[in-house]
Amino acid sequence: MSNSIPTLRWGIIATGLISSWFVDDLVLNRKDAKANHIIQAIGSSSIDKARAFAEKHLSGQNPAIYGNYDEVYADSNVDIIYIGTPHALHKKNCLDAIGAGKHVLCEKAFTLNAREARVVFEAAKKRGVFIMEAMWTRFYPLTRTVISLIHEQRAIGDIQRVFCDFAMDQKIASLGPESRLKDPALGAGSLLDIGIYSLTWGLLGSDSGIGAEAQTPQIAAKQTIQDGFDVATSAILLYPNGRQAIVSSSNLVDPKSNIICTIQGSNGHIDIAGFPSAPEYFTLYLKDGSSKKYEFERPGRGFYWEADAVALDIAAGRVQNQIMPWAETVRVLELLDEIRRQGGAKFPQDEVV
């Protein structure tokens, strides 16, 4: 790697599926890399799990192996902590990492609710460390192109409606009550796991602003609750100008179409294909009958785009990222809180004052 790009040394917290995807992407040899990423340490619930993870995903490398998280936080060779634990553990993991003076990239949903997020951001502010929610989809070149086309270039005119659904048969019935997908104390349900992506596309498609600069839509929401968690959620976002975004999620069924989001405007529409979390391409259709398909090269899954952005921010001395600032994370969680308030899904942590 060239010395002209920053180097960031990562400590990985938890060795589940999302962490494996993240690590696999960071060690790819990319021609357009904006940063050099080193997996410096692996922390898991046991040293055997951490060692097995490293052997599978970091062949030929020699990260420090720890059978707990505290030693990762304390490792002086680690610059930043990547948190891939269940939602309910994020607040504690973030606070522990911040307390050790580490920068943090924490998976979505950042915390269980907006109140927890505010606590974490206040701690980061006091310590002066970088922290960001790992909403990787926002950093895709595809996503940035869609946003530019509809909001800056106004390619489809005035935005009128946005639809996004994320459905995935997660075989809920076959899982034990201790699963993160079924235990409300771990943030179970479709909304925080996959519905957050539908909501994200609804927001990005409807409004060019983020965080404090964004419009605040009214929410109308319904949820199907099973064993204390939502298996399906639908919400309508209504903006002051009459624009609507209809977003939904389900962990009981698989989608029947690869079109996961449609953004409709006065002069045409855009169909986005793939997974809501990892879109593959989109097609622009204009009312004059013309169309254009936009495709993007994507080695691996695409986690490196957010990781590169984090590295550049830290190298520049910034503690927030402009694509996913703290205020945007809080705004999204406030909307998720309201959807759950109307829909009925509750977490034990919601009652903690």
Rank of each mutant, 00 (worst) to 15 (best):
Q61W: 11
S59A: 05
D48L: 09
S45I: 11
K34S: 13
E55T: 14
N62T: 10
Y66K: 03
K31Q: 15
N68Y: 07
W21H: 11
H57I: 10
S46E: 07
F53R: 03
I18Y: 02
W21T: 08
G16T: 03
V27K: 03
L26H: 02
I12M: 15
G11F: 09
G67Q: 07
I42K: 01
L26Q: 04
F53W: 09
K34L: 15
I12D: 07
G43M: 07
D70Q: 08
S45M: 07
T15Q: 00
A50H: 05
I12V: 15
Y73S: 07
I13N: 00
H37S: 05
L17M: 12
N36C: 08
K34Q: 15
S59N: 11
S19Y: 02
L17P: 08
D48A: 15
G43S: 13
I47M: 11
S59I: 04
N29K: 10
V27A: 06
I18M: 12
G67R: 06
K49D: 15
G16W: 01
E55I: 12
K34C: 11
D24S: 15
V27G: 04
I13D: 00
Y66S: 05
L8G: 00
V27F: 02
K34E: 13
P63T: 05
D32E: 13
D25L: 00
S20N: 01
I38G: 09
S19W: 03
A54F: 01
L58C: 10
Y73G: 09
S59V: 10
A14I: 04
N68C: 12
H37F: 00
A14N: 14
Y73T: 06
S20A: 02
A33T: 06
Y69M: 06
I13F: 00
Y66D: 04
E71M: 08
W21V: 11
F22R: 09
V72M: 06
S46T: 15
A50L: 11
H37L: 02
E71P: 10
G67K: 09
D24R: 06
A54C: 14
A64R: 06
I65M: 10
G60N: 08
I18E: 12
Y73V: 14
H57R: 14
V23I: 08
F22H: 14
V23K: 01
H37A: 01
Y66A: 09
I18L: 14
A35M: 02
R30V: 07
N36H: 04
N68K: 04
A50F: 09
W10M: 04
I42P: 09
E55F: 05
I65N: 11
V23P: 02
P63K: 01
Q61L: 11
N68D: 12
Q61M: 14
D32I: 05
K56F: 01
K34P: 08
